[in-house]
């Protein structure tokens, strides 16, 4: 059988930190971002929350959540995210490399109420660190944070794991929108900084931390 894994998708640029799109002098930096994580942890909900935000809540209905795009501006630089959802079920695990190949950013999602999903997320992270682009910006996102009143005990391991592997760590809630936009903004900033010649290694991402407001009430279930 032909080795389907060996070939790159058309137009993908393995190892690149994204590409530029658009005509004229100003080109939006285009970032392929993959969402990884166990089935049911809320990968697509995070993407939809980021892409649709509040605008579509009263707008048209859409069910497609496998491929989404959104452009944001980071420090005056337009960054277009191409968000690729990946299948989370175990039976599709072997297909994931096709999706994350060449991606400069990944958001690995787990459910803070489900310890198994956290273990699977750590597996994904290890796989990305081994297989994917060395410059890949990886976010570890503990989703459904609105469902637990105090996440300090649950996120300790995750925070430690993120620090050890130089990941961006965030607790998110696709339901309330908590930190969802922030993680994409932070990814955008890191990617934008990667363009600068002085930032060339993985240390660049380790310095980015989401500012968590003390006593924040964002987690309160709406």
């Amino acid at each position: 059988m032909n080795d389907w894994n060996s070939s790159s998708p058309p137009n993908s640029r393995p190892g690149s930190g994204g590409s530029s799109v658009g005509g004229g002098g100003s080109k939006a930096k285009q970032i392929k971002l993959v969402l990884l994580g166990d089935s049911g942890v809320g990968k697509s909900s995070i993407a939809l929350r980021f892409v649709r935000g509040e605008f579509n809540e009263n707008g048209e209905t859409t069910i497609g959540a496998a491929y989404l795009t959104k452009t944001i501006n980071c420090q005056g630089c337009p960054i277009k995210f191409d968000i690729w959802d990946t299948a989370g079920q175990e039976r599709y695990h072997s297909l994931a490399p096709m999706y994350y190949r060449g991606a400069p950013a990944a958001v690995v999602v787990y459910d803070v109420t489900n310890v198994n999903s956290y273990h699977k997320a750590t597996r994904w992270v290890k796989e990305l660190l081994q297989q994917a682009n060395a410059m890949m910006v990886i976010v570890l996102a503990g989703n459904k944070a609105d469902m637990v009143s105090d996440t300090r005990s649950t996120n300790e391991d995750a925070r430690k794991f993120a620090n050890e592997n130089k990941l961006i760590f965030a607790e998110t809630s696709a339901k309330t929108g908590m930190h969802v936009d922030d993680i994409f903004a932070q990814i955008g900033n890191v990617i934008a900084r990667q363009q600068a010649p002085e930032v060339t290694d993985r240390q660049g991402r380790g310095n980015v931390k989401l500012a968590k407001k003390e006593g924040s009430k964002e987690r309160t279930c709406c």
């Binding site: 799109v21 658009g22 004229g24 100003s26 939006a28 285009q30 795009t69 277009k80």
Partner: peptide, 14 residues
């Protein structure tokens, strides 16, 4: 599926 972002090709935005 989401279409191409208008801002990518928009000369005003450019």
């Amino acid at each position: 599926m989401t279409d191409t972002d208008e801002l990518d090709i928009n000369k005003f935005f450019s």
